[in-house]
Design a protein around this nucleic acid. Sequence first.
DNA 1: TTGAAAGCGCTAACAT
DNA 2: ATGTTAGCGCTTTCAA
Lengths: 319, 319
Amino acid sequence: MATIRDIARLTGHSISTVSRAINHSGYVAPETKAKIMAAVKKLDYRPNHIARELSSGRTHRIGLILPSANHPFFHRLVNSISAAALSAGYEVVLLPTNYNRHVEVDRLEELRAHAFDGLIFTSRSNSFDFIMQYADYGPIVCCENTRHYPLSCAYKNRENSFQKTFQRLKAKGYRKIGVTVSRNEYVSASAQATIRAYQRVFGLPLKDELLFRDALTPFDGATAAGEFLAAEPGLEAILANSDEIAAGVYQYCQHHQRQLTLIGQDNELISQLLNFSTIDNHLNDIGSIAFSLLFEKEVKKVLVPATFIERHLPSLHQA
Amino acid sequence: MATIRDIARLTGHSISTVSRAINHSGYVAPETKAKIMAAVKKLDYRPNHIARELSSGRTHRIGLILPSANHPFFHRLVNSISAAALSAGYEVVLLPTNYNRHVEVDRLEELRAHAFDGLIFTSRSNSFDFIMQYADYGPIVCCENTRHYPLSCAYKNRENSFQKTFQRLKAKGYRKIGVTVSRNEYVSASAQATIRAYQRVFGLPLKDELLFRDALTPFDGATAAGEFLAAEPGLEAILANSDEIAAGVYQYCQHHQRQLTLIGQDNELISQLLNFSTIDNHLNDIGSIAFSLLFEKEVKKVLVPATFIERHLPSLHQA
DNA sequence: TTGAAAGCGCTAACAT
DNA sequence: ATGTTAGCGCTTTCAA
């Protein structure tokens, strides 16, 4: 591999002149530049990326913390963040943690070691208090409400959207509603928000039998539906933590000839095809805003309001 | 930010001793090491990632070329590749090209500039001949058959699986079959393979009215179904280029009360829920194999055979 | 067991 | 317009 020094030697110029010529910066005589460019071509020279990073102190790379890449929620964020990064001249490094807090710590340490110019959290396994300790080492943005912590975020107001959804259901006369959440309420703020919203709207706590924890796959959705119906045969509706889970519920209903009102989240293709209602959290907006917040000087918290998309499942019919 | 020199100064040792202590390599007296570690803690020191990369010449980072992140096909590959990378101590950088060959060239140039230790192509917009020129600068692996080119790959034999699928349909007595492809046959090897397979099985060329090009979204699937049926009212089956597209076809059929045999690809959730047949290309395997091939000394080409998953759509019924 | 010193390949301030 | 030089922060060889 040819280095800048080789070019300097070959052309008889100094490395700084070569550097200037290559970067089209500063003064370089046209003929000098031409000669240098010829040498560059001749020696198949390319400036070393890493050396540039070291010298400039910037990587033009941001890290993206996510549990694993295989969930629609994260796909959306990855899409929008990487699109925003591309057009801003940044590259994004995928940092799957599998919800392992130690892996997450390693990534924060990498931020500290200047491996990235910034970090975006789409999920987290450590406390805000802990994460905040790394804020000095580079910009950190979260895709959830960081509340009173001085960390920028682009987020949806879950409690609010859940509350509205429950109110909607209440207004329609529904009383028996099952709810699925992705992780238990001790770990997940989302689960807490769901539970609180229910309590607030209906004035009484969500029964434990009508709360399904750790719903991750459509299969879990079907399981949840089964358990709900066993505990409460008069069940009227299910609010699921994603369209995928709702699809699992749908499948169960089809199979057992039950009609339920179904509400998913994130307006995935499946909800459009199966035609059930969904809460659109506008993840694309959250992603691109999160990216842009990395470069704000001050801490900013941007609320992206959710939208309710109402759809009606066709009524049941036997084949 | 404290540097290794600060630690050296504070402890009164040389930077090389500090380096050895930090890296747990070479000889360092226990007390010396303890003293150094104490200083490390005291000064909140962390070795600079970039400097290490420059010094060692390796980044432990691989680039992943893909058109954009929003297609299930790529999700699968991203998942499996990033999982494989994680467990091998590598990080993956997402490199969306939007099928723009110039962007792709820029990424190849980055490989040349040592920004990555290797590159995986999940799609490409440049010729193999062109890409090969960069093979000297670092390992390159493709997720499609590289044929006679000396480039490693993990791939599915598309022509073979399409052929088997057509044979299956032929055996069932089907003759009127529509086919969707994602890009036209002049650009896409996959489209060519589909067309050839049809010709080989049925002995006559696929009619142009029964080939839909540029099918990217479920909406395109619905459009394709409409066009096929307009051109050939007796249409019996559609082979789609993905489960998403097939789902679009499904939607059209539902809406227009038509019964068609549907075959998608990649065994996505939607095909399971809607219960139509699909060709499972085992993208997870392709991804993890592709990653492992980066580190093989020789060029290797690994065929991952596809599997046909037969499912039966429930017959039509009016609500 | 430790340290001096030479890189790694580049940028940028400063001098000419 | 060009060159000198001092970094950037680390690893590694070699000598002590």
